[in-house]
Design a protein around this nucleic acid. Sequence first.
DNA 1: AGCTGTCATGCAATCGATTGCGTGGAGCTT
DNA 2: AAGCTCCACGCAATCGATTGCATGACAGCT
Lengths: 343, 343
Amino acid sequence: MKRRVTLKDIARETGVHVSTVSRALDPVTRKAITAEVAEKIQAAAERLGYRPNRIAAGLRTNRTMTVGVMIPDITNVIFPPILRGIESVLEPLGYASIIVNTDGEKERESRLVNVLRDRGVDGIIHAAATRDDPMVARAAEDGMPIVTLNRRVEDGGIPFVINDEQSGICQMLRHLMELGHRSIAHIAGPQDLSTGQLRLAAFRDAMAETQLACNEGLIATATHFDESEGARCVEQLLASGLRFTAVLCANDRLALGAIERLHEEGLNCPADVSVSGFNDMPFLNLIRPRLTTIHIEQHGAGQAAARLLVQLLNGAESEQLPTETILPVRLVVRESTGPAPAP
Amino acid sequence: MKRRVTLKDIARETGVHVSTVSRALDPVTRKAITAEVAEKIQAAAERLGYRPNRIAAGLRTNRTMTVGVMIPDITNVIFPPILRGIESVLEPLGYASIIVNTDGEKERESRLVNVLRDRGVDGIIHAAATRDDPMVARAAEDGMPIVTLNRRVEDGGIPFVINDEQSGICQMLRHLMELGHRSIAHIAGPQDLSTGQLRLAAFRDAMAETQLACNEGLIATATHFDESEGARCVEQLLASGLRFTAVLCANDRLALGAIERLHEEGLNCPADVSVSGFNDMPFLNLIRPRLTTIHIEQHGAGQAAARLLVQLLNGAESEQLPTETILPVRLVVRESTGPAPAP
DNA sequence: AGCTGTCATGCAATCGATTGCGTGGAGCTT
DNA sequence: AAGCTCCACGCAATCGATTGCATGACAGCT
């Protein structure tokens, strides 16, 4: 196990001072060095197999070229594409990311923010904020560049990237109405998650714009974004005795659970009841009936957040950056929605 | 934006030397300090909100408490659980991980190994090795602790963790034979990936142990582990004109693609042809017919690899560590396999 | 020829924590 | 009371790269 090559080694080899070597190896400062000397130094660096020590540089410059990425849970299929989006922007610029999972727990979230700070990350992309976290707020106050993803932040000038939930719900509602549905139920997501909240609000708004009264009895709220909650909620809707011919769900997994339970109750989708999802998660094309849903740009959202963060890292003031970036969404009509059955 | 608190600040505050502060704050060296003084220092550290600078410590100790994790692609659903397994072991010990995606490209793999080395990771968990990579070999030679996952490494004493592919294929073959199948086809995975290779070899071995001759015509090889290749391969098998009543696939996605194409050709699964998968990936319970497959311990594999790496990091010699760790697999019988149809 | 300006390079401090070695004082022995 | 041991703590070097400032040489100008 041989010792690593340092600037000092190159300096000794080439007979110049380490500071000269340092300057010759940095493309920005190289212009201050005679071309001939710079080339000699570069050649020596190459020959000796020099690899800069980022730790040492980081200590001096206070930049680690590392960013923290906070997500609720990597096993949730919507996050990997987001991470690839982030990576696609950050990696070419020489940044690496440390990914942490909060599991939606506030206490864990606070702790992990500090873990990231202790590690000296240059900035944070936060895709897991449930609500205002004091540690996150503190980090922001202390000057840590932060961008949030999938979450609107009211206070503070923290830039955020979200999908156009409003438009998505709207497009889906219009689609269902064009199919003749008039009694439309909603399975809302957890209200402590911003997506759940935003989509429910969007549903109420969209319904208000139609002639239809929004029957609060036709809104069931899930405690988690998963299949079993979708099933439970649709059961609750059925038990209410209220008639509905379509269920607009806040998320694909809720929709899948709902369809399954409806099927168990002898109701077929889309013949008897239309069901729609939201997110267009991977593998949806393999599940029957193929789900009509709202496609969101996961990869694009990651890229957008990363680009914003890079600007902050490069010294852009939050004021000159867009506080909100709203990504377009797209209706994807597949098989789980169809004409409303005759009454 | 206030300056961060350093050891020097605490030293000034408490009237002792920074080295004393350093020792008082490290549980290991604390015993060398008078209890009273140590408490005073800890109190001051607490009061001032001291957070150790890992970068500075890393420069001096040459340990970053960071490990690199190399995977082919995080959007492949089998990797997130592995990562959570790794995290569950590493995070409590104070390690963070930098995850990189190789996309199965050799050139990218080499480059990323160097990225990780430059960042001074203490060790690497490599779950993306396609074949021997010179940079990985070099890193190992230079003393970088490395553990590979899902890949057998012949040369060098690099410890590896793999699933018991052999046993999985064997169990599945026995299951199919118990259902009366005698003409069994295999859709093999890409042969440049170790899992593809191992499972094909296991299939041949297992067939050899039965009375049945292994008909090479009933083996189709996919170029990727995805649905379209599963479809293409099953088509190829059908085109061969050879009779088969079951298809043992090297991977769930190949199986899903195969089932779909069979269906399009008017062959139902499992009534006409039984199809089996491998991996038991998430969401399989939502796809009809529910796939019979081999469950592998993804989370457990991550944990096992992480535990091995920790031992290496703690100075265990490779010699005293198990070179191979083979994780048990489990047959999961669902709906895609059934009795062989009468001839 | 002498003076000024410019530019390449060297010098040394610095980032913050760790750690081998030195030292002074307290307590104990004879 | 002199000498000894032991231990808590201080001192200072160190990790490797960066960077403001100093310096020296050389060219150009009058």
